Computed example of a mutant assay.
Amino acid sequence: MFTHIDHVAISVKDRMKSIAFYEENFGFKQYFEHDVPGVPALEKVVYLKLGNTVLELEHWNTNKVNAGCHFCLISDDFDGDYNRLVEAGIPVISEPHIPSPRVPEEKGWKRVLFQGPDGEHIEFRG
C-alpha cells in the first residue's frame, strides 16, 4: 500500500531564479540536481527539501505551463510569514481567510494563496 507522496514537481523557466525564490522565501534547500538523458527539452531537474517535503523543479527549455494544481505548506507564524512574503513582492492570489477546519486542530487556522515565478500556486496555512 502507498504510504505518502515522495515529491511534488513543477515546471520552471529559470531554475536558478526558482531555486533562489524557494530558498529565500520559503526555507527550502537544494540537495540534488541532474540531467535527464533522452529528454532534450528537459534541461535539468533540481530537488529542494523543507523538512520531509521535497519539491522537484523541472527546468524545461520549452514553454510548459503550471496549471490546475498547487501545493500547501504549514506555517508556525502565519501573520509573520504572510507579511514577509507580501513585503518581498510575491503576488497574492487569495487573501488570508479562515476556512472550515478539516480536523479540530485546524480550528481558527488561516489560509492564503500566493503565486510563484512560473505561475505555480503556493498555499500556506497556519
Rank of each mutant, 00 (worst) to 15 (best):
Y82H: 14
H59F: 06
E23M: 15
K49G: 13
G80A: 08
I98C: 11
L42Q: 08
G126E: 12
I5N: 07
D77V: 02
Y31W: 08
E106C: 08
H4P: 03
K64F: 01
D6R: 15
D14Y: 11
S100P: 01
S100R: 14
E120R: 00
Y31M: 00
P99Q: 13
I98H: 10
N25Y: 12
F71N: 03
P37K: 01
R125G: 10
G27Q: 09
Y47Q: 08
K110Q: 10
E95S: 15
V46Y: 04
E43V: 10
K49C: 14
D14N: 15
F32A: 14
N61A: 06
K107S: 13
W109Y: 00
V36R: 01
E58T: 01
V86L: 08
R15W: 01
A20D: 03
E58H: 03
D118F: 05
R125Y: 08
E56P: 01
P99I: 15
E123Y: 09
I74A: 08
D77Y: 07
T3L: 13
D79R: 13
P101N: 09
G126T: 12
E56T: 04
K29D: 00
D81S: 08
C69N: 11
V8C: 12
K17F: 07
W60F: 09
L55E: 05
P104E: 00
R84C: 06
L42G: 04
V45W: 01
I5L: 14
G80I: 08
G27M: 10
F114P: 00
V36K: 01
H59K: 02
V112Q: 01
G51C: 06
A67R: 09
G27I: 10
S18K: 11
G126H: 11
F28K: 04
P37T: 00
